[in-house]
Amino acid sequence: MIADQLNKVVRRVPAWPIYLIGAALPAWLLWLGTTGGLGVDPVKEIERTLGLWALKLIIAGLCISPLRRLAGINLIKYRRAIGVLAFSYVFLHFLTWIVLDMGLLVDQALKDIVKRPYITIGMAAMVLMLPLALTSNNWSVRKLGAQRWNKWHKLTYPAAILAALHYVWLVKVWPVEPFLYLGATLLLLGIRALSKRGQLPA
């Protein structure tokens, strides 16, 4: 079976290279941005790329347990790295916004967070992800107990929906791409809801 073959490979490939590869993207963006490699508006490009990859990683993280349940592919050992990386990108996306895009006009930025729904929900998604990133270590799992830890980490679901809505909400017309991300997020959460109600294999 392909799943068995895959699982065999997974057993031999550790998770730590994900952090390494993950750290390369921001470094690469900063390099391109300071050397003119990101086009006419490097600030927007950095902001967008980090946000988009954060969303991709959030969705990748949501794929892991359905893949195990429905296809027997066990990638669970990568989930922590994917989640921590997703939060790191969200945080860098936020920093890019406040430092490079808003030019540290903190007063104006605070007003925008309160007043602009798409920024409000983006911030909310980041705040929801913060405790998840902070407890993504073995010590926290032990301290909280697996059950409570699991419950806490269900915050991923609202965070994912808010992150996808944040993308849909900022565009001026209705291009397809943001809706594909929102659709994927809702689909993955739908699969969870169904399997919980026993309509899909648990």
Binding site: T34, I46, V99, D101, L105, Q108, P117
Partner: peptide, 15 residues
């Protein structure tokens, strides 16, 4: 959906 109080001049540096 966004403030019009300030603007970013295209063509500056990252900072």
């Amino acid at each position: 959906r966004w403030s019009q109080a300030s603007e970013r001049r295209i063509g500056g540096s990252l900072f």
